[in-house]
Simulated scan of single mutants.
Amino acid sequence: MLRGSFVALVTPFIDGELDLRTLRHLVEWQIREGTDGLVPCGTTGETPALSEREWRLVIETVIDQAAGRVPVIANTGTNSTAVSIERTRIARELGATAAMIVTPYYNRPQQDGILRHVVAIADAVDLPLVLYNVPGRTGVNLLPDTVVRLLDLATVIGVKESSGSLDQASELVLALEGRAAVLSGDDSLTLPIITVGGAGVVSVLANIVPAATRDLVHAALAGDLARARRLQHELFPLVRALFLETNPVPVKAAAELLGLCRSEVRLPLAPMSSTNRQRLSQALAGCPHTAARLAAATEVQ
C-alpha cells in the first residue's frame, strides 16, 4: 500500500534542453531529505511539453538515480489509450514501481470510457497503477463509484485525488474501504485528507521543502495532529504562493530562488510575472523551512 510523501518532480531545463545532471541532483536531494517516493513526468514535470524521447530519458534517469531506494511512480497516462499502453510498457521495462494514469484530457470520456481506458492498460501491461483525478486540468471527474468498479478489473493500488473537494476525497476513502490508497493531490488539503483516511500526498510543495512535507504527512499519519497542524500553518502561506500562477511556473521560480534549479519552463507556459515572483519570494522569506536557504542563495547570487 502506498503511504507517505511522494514528490511530483519538476523537470529541469537549461537553454531549452533537459538538464539531466540537475535532475539527478534533485532526486538525490529528495531521497536524502526523506521523501517516500518520486513521481516524474506528471503535471509538475511538464509532460505535455516533452517529446517521447525526453519523456523516456526523464523516467530512465529518475529510476537509475533512485536505484531502488524509494518507489518511482512514472506518469504514463495520456489521452490516447494506445500511447498510454506503450508508455506503461516502457516504464515497466525501465523498472518503475508503478504507473500513474491520468484521466484522459481533452477527449472528456464518460465514466465507462475512463474505466475501459484503464482496464485496457492493465490488461496489456503487468504493472500496478495509480489513478490520477485532476478535473481542473482534464475536464472530467473520476467518480468514486468508477474507482470501485476498477478495483475488480485492474491492479489499482492508489488514487491521486486532485478534485479539490474534501467531500469527494472522503467519499472515495469510504468507498475504497482500504483496498487502495487515497493520496492528496492538493498540498493545501493534505492534512484534511489524511484525517479522513487518506494515506499521504503527491506533492508540488515537496519540490522545495521535502523534509517538512514528509514531517507533516508522517505526523498526521501517526496521529500527532498537534505537530501536523503546526507544520500545516507554517507551510500554508507558501502553498498559496506556489499556485499564484499555473503550476509548475511558481514552484520552478521558487526552486531557482532557493538555488535548486533554473526557473525555465517551456512554451506555452511563460515565466512568472515580476509582481508574483516578488510575492513568492516574500512567502519563502516568511517560511521557517525556506528562509535560511533563501538568504544563503541570495548571497551567492
Rank of each mutant, 00 (worst) to 15 (best):
Leu238Phe: 10
Thr298Val: 12
Ile193Ser: 06
Cys287Ala: 10
Thr88Trp: 02
Glu54Met: 10
Gly95Lys: 09
Leu127Thr: 10
Ser51Thr: 15
Glu256Ala: 12
Arg53Pro: 02
Ser51Glu: 12
Leu294Ile: 10
Ala255Asn: 00
Thr246Trp: 02
Thr146Val: 03
Pro128Ala: 08
Asp167Tyr: 04
Val209Met: 10
Ile59Phe: 07
Asn276Ala: 03
Arg92His: 01
Ala296Pro: 03
Pro210Arg: 08
Ala8Leu: 09
Ala67Phe: 12
Val70Phe: 10
Asp167Thr: 12
Leu176Met: 07
Ala175Cys: 03
Leu38Ile: 06
Val134Met: 06
Leu57Thr: 02
Leu57Gly: 04
Leu142Met: 14
Leu9Cys: 08
Asn133Glu: 05
Pro12Gly: 04
Val58Pro: 13
Gly223His: 01
Ala226Asp: 14
Val140Phe: 04
Val70Gln: 08
Leu143Tyr: 04
Val134Cys: 05
Arg293His: 02
Ser5His: 11
Ala219Ser: 15
Ile101Thr: 13
Ala122Gly: 04
Gln278Leu: 13
Pro104Leu: 13
Gln65His: 05
Glu17Ala: 15
Ala124Glu: 09
Ser162Ala: 04
Ala219Phe: 14
Arg56Asp: 07
Asp152His: 14
Thr44Pro: 05
Tyr132Cys: 03
Pro288Thr: 14
Val148Ala: 07
Ala253Val: 00
Pro12Ser: 01
Leu284Thr: 11
Ser273Cys: 09
Gly37Ile: 14
Val202Pro: 13
Leu176Val: 12
Ala66Met: 10
Ile114Ser: 07
Arg89Ile: 05
Leu176Ile: 03
Ala181Lys: 08
Arg149Tyr: 06
Ala254Ser: 11
Asp19Trp: 00
Leu26Met: 12
Gly139Tyr: 05
Arg240Leu: 13
Leu115Gln: 08
Trp29Met: 05
Glu46Lys: 14
Leu143Val: 08
Leu205Lys: 09
Asp64Tyr: 02
Gly197Cys: 00
Arg53Lys: 11
Thr290Gln: 14
Glu256Cys: 06
Ser165Met: 00
Ile90Ser: 07
Val125Asn: 11
Ile121Asp: 02
Gly136Pro: 01
Val265Ser: 01
Ile208Met: 02
Ala292Pro: 07
Ile85Glu: 11
Arg21Asn: 00
Leu183Val: 09
Ala8Arg: 04
Cys41Pro: 14
Val201Leu: 12
Arg279Val: 12
